[in-house]
Design a protein around this nucleic acid. Structure first.
Length: 701
RNA sequence: GGUCGCUUAGCUCAGUUGGUUAGAGUACUUCCUUGACAUGGAAGGGGUCACAAGUUCGAGUCUUGUAGCGACCACCA
């Protein structure tokens, strides 16, 4: 936007010079290219002039007044000069009315013979002189200062001047139609393209649907020269608008064709314009594979699977690859287009060299590690959303890599070289649990990485949780003593299970963290590189619901003990005596054989499941029971009371809302029975909690 | 002007067909250098899901509207 002027100029009527019409323009010098003055058909001010001629000032060339919707009665004077050769909109108006464009300017921005006395003047010199002349002649009605949008060239800084020139075009309708069909539901498999996220189909269609012909010639040095040869011997050795031409894949081919029509002596000159860079890029999926030859590479790599790219390139490149592929090979170049978000800086601004707000990946890799950077970026990649990036975000990736590495380093001396079978080992509940969790994680990762899903963040997070929480914090801690201990069935089982899970884990992590996983693979003596190895297969593991209950029980006891420890700020190293009392004696019987797991996760002096409530004990609830931790000399009844009351308050509040929900007849009759039953179950659980907490408070006195 | 996206904990973001007391990472408070990892472990605090109306037994989730932010495209005689 810059400051400019808005000149109102009077065009006199041809039949009665006292009459006329005033048009407003920001570029008066273009009036030499005028072919009409347009007004709105319903505009009362000008209705009577429609069909009559007015005269262009200075050169007095007559032009018609036409009615066209382009003229907006609200804008300017309501009358607009039409200069098809020097304005995009006017060009369209000219087409609608069958007006022959008049080019009034040369490529060096001097005015041409159409400008009469102004011929040969530079555009802005002409403007200055013309305004003065119009003013003196009384034809300049008004001058208004206003801010106008002027297009500047991003390289030369010059004002861009539209001018009508002959160019090469691709007729789009035959190209666009198959490309549009490719994203419709019923498209044949090899001609179908899916966008992820699918909302980008809309962007894609918006570009193609107008079927606007594509101007492919460019007046540049770099690029593929357009394979058109003019037969210049037919037009005195010059290239003119009427010079015949031939096309060919090579000059020889063009020459043969030209010779057939124009004789062997004809002289050819190749078009100097080059193809639009996107035309060349559109051929990329197959031109890089040897096309037009039917090479092995082409057969192997066309079509490919997934194109990963940014949304601002959907039309420029993606759509053009699709319609070119469909046109030249009859198949879509890929079945899926994954549109990722844009990486922005911390403040949400695009990174740019001029702003200097870029984050150099090489620097980040040096600081955090390549896998850490890659994993962190994948974690941040959710459904095409933009990513506000800052260096601290790579810390999580680095910490994760460190965690995995240290776990392996710890177990490494105990691992046996080859991967033995799980058959014949005495697998504990913990072993079967981690094997089952590993299988669940495999399914999660597979679902997330499906070509139709491509939820990279989900895959990364599933692996993160499994590795950190289940594999390291739970399984490894529980089995630590067995793994590092003397040879025993427990050691053999735990070491083998650890290795088995680790091998699956690094295979799953490999696409996300290729370096550290390959390093680990080598360190544990697995012979086949992950990059060429197989994706893990699901493993059959016995883990019935009863086992799941026991595992939950163990973890809830641990959590209860930790709550007490945390509540009293007791050091983790201080052993605690723990008594767990279940409402159902069967639960105690089921859990007690597996209670050893608790001592892997918490420092325990003793753990039993019977006897009465110990004296001076802090308590915490677990599903279906209570955990007591005697704290003689440490127990603070007042603090304990506060803690329990807070929890009681929460439980009571929930009971109130839950009862309200279940008293609502519409809910009970309207909701599916299983939902209602689930809500009842919740209420029962909370009522039980209220009862237990009330009891615990009463015990405190 | 057209199209699309975003608005959820201090910050950065998940939350897949409407149905646990809305989650994670980070930051914060307290405790801990315990024999893989302090790039670590444990406990805890923190959100009327931008606002308004509607649909529904039930809305962070669906509909409409409003506000703010952002992107792309078009236009600006």
């Amino acid at each position: 936007e810059t400051k400019g002027h808005f000149w109102s100029i009077r065009y006199a009527s041809e039949e009665d010079p006292s009459q006329g019409i005033v048009v407003a323009t920001t570029r008066p010098e273009t009036l030499f290219g005028d072919v009409a003055v347009a007004v709105h058909a319903e505009d009362e001010r000008y209705k009577h002039l429609i069909g009559k001629n007015v005269l262009i000032p200075v050169i007095n060339r007559p032009i018609p007044v036409i009615a066209d919707e382009h003229a907006d009665p609200e804008k300017g004077t309501g009358a607009v000069k039409i200069t098809p050769a020097h304005d995009f909109n006017d060009y369209e108006v000219g087409l609608r009315h069958g007006l022959k464009p008049v080019v009034a300017m040369n490529l060096d921005t001097t005015l041409n013979h159409e400008a009469g006395p102004y011929a040969g003047m530079k555009r802005f010199d002409a403007r200055k002189k013309l305004v003065k002349e119009l003013e003196e002649g009384g034809q300049l009605v008004a001058v208004e200062d206003r801010v106008i949008a002027v297009p500047y060239c991003y390289r030369s800084g010059d004002v861009v001047e539209p001018v009508l020139l002959a160019q090469w075009y691709v007729k789009m309708a035959p190209m666009a139609d198959p490309a549009l069909a490719a994203v419709e539901p019923g498209a044949p498999k090899d001609k179908a393209v899916r966008f992820v996220p699918d909302r980008y189909v809309k962007t894609y269609k918006q570009w193609l649907e107008p079927r606007r012909d594509w101007c492919i010639s460019r007046q540049l040095w770099w690029g593929h020269q357009i394979p058109v040869w003019y037969v210049v011997s037919e037009t005195d050795g010059q290239v003119r608008d009427n010079t015949p031409y031939v096309v060919g894949r090579t000059e020889d081919e063009a020459r043969r064709r030209a010779a057939e029509k124009f004789g062997a002596a004809c002289v050819l000159k190749q078009e100097e314009d080059v193809l639009d860079t996107w035309f060349s890029s559109a051929l990329w999926p197959f031109s890089t594979q040897g096309w037009p030859d039917r090479t092995e590479d082409l057969a192997t790599f066309y079509p490919t699977d997934v194109l990963i790219t940014a949304r601002d390139i959907i039309y420029f490149w993606v759509a053009r690859m699709i319609f070119s592929g469909l046109k030249f090979l009859g198949k879509a170049p890929f079945h899926t287009v994954y549109i990722h978000g844009t990486i922005l800086d911390e403040k949400g601004q695009r990174m740019s060299k001029s702003k200097g707000n870029g984050i150099d990946p090489i620097e980040m890799i040096e600081k955090f590690g390549a896998d850490a950077v890659r994993f962190a970026l994948l974690t941040l990649t959710t459904e095409g959303q933009d990513i506000k990036l800052s260096p601290v975000k790579f810390e999580g990736g680095r910490n994760f890599a460190n965690k995995l590495w240290n776990a392996v380093r710890f177990v490494h001396p105990h691992l046996t070289a080859a991967a033995p079978s799980l058959d014949g080992l005495e697998l504990s509940l913990a072993d079967r649990w981690i094997l089952k969790r590993c299988g669940e994680t495999l399914r999660e990762v597979e679902a997330a990485l499906e070509p139709s899903a491509l939820r990279f963040s989900d895959a990364a997070q599933a692996l993160y949780r499994f590795t950190w929480d289940d594999f390291c914090s739970r399984y490894l801690e529980v089995r630590k003593k067995d793994i590092t201990g003397e040879d025993s069935p427990a050691k053999r089982a735990s070491v083998t299970v650890f290795r088995t899970v680790l091998v699956d884990l690094i295979a799953m992590l490999h696409p996300l963290m290729p370096f550290i996983t390959e390093e680990i693979r080598e360190a544990i003596g697995e012979p086949v590189p992950l990059v060429t190895g197989a994706w893990p297969a699901p493993r059959a593991v016995e883990f019935p619901e009863s086992d799941a209950k026991i595992m939950e029980g163990v973890l809830s006891v641990v959590e209860a003990v930790r709550q007490v420890r945390g509540g009293y700020s007791l050091p983790p190293g201080q052993p605690l005596s723990v008594r767990v009392l279940f409402d159902d004696p069967g639960a105690a019987a089921a859990l007690s054989p597996h209670a050893w797991m608790v001592s892997g996760l918490e420092r325990i002096a003793s753990l039993d499941f019977e006897g009465g409530k110990p004296a001076f004990a802090a308590s915490a609830l677990i599903p279906g029971g209570k955990v007591y931790v005697p704290l003689e000399g440490l127990l603070d009844p007042a603090a304990e009371k506060v803690r329990l009351e807070k929890e009681l308050e929460r439980a009571r509040a929930f009971v109130t809302t839950q009862e309200g929900k279940l008293k609502n007849g519409k809910f009970v009759s309207g909701a599916p029975p299983e939902v209602v039953e689930a809500e009842r179950e919740k209420l029962r659980t909370q009522l039980d909690k209220v009862a237990k907490l009330t009891e615990a408070l009463a015990d405190l006195g």
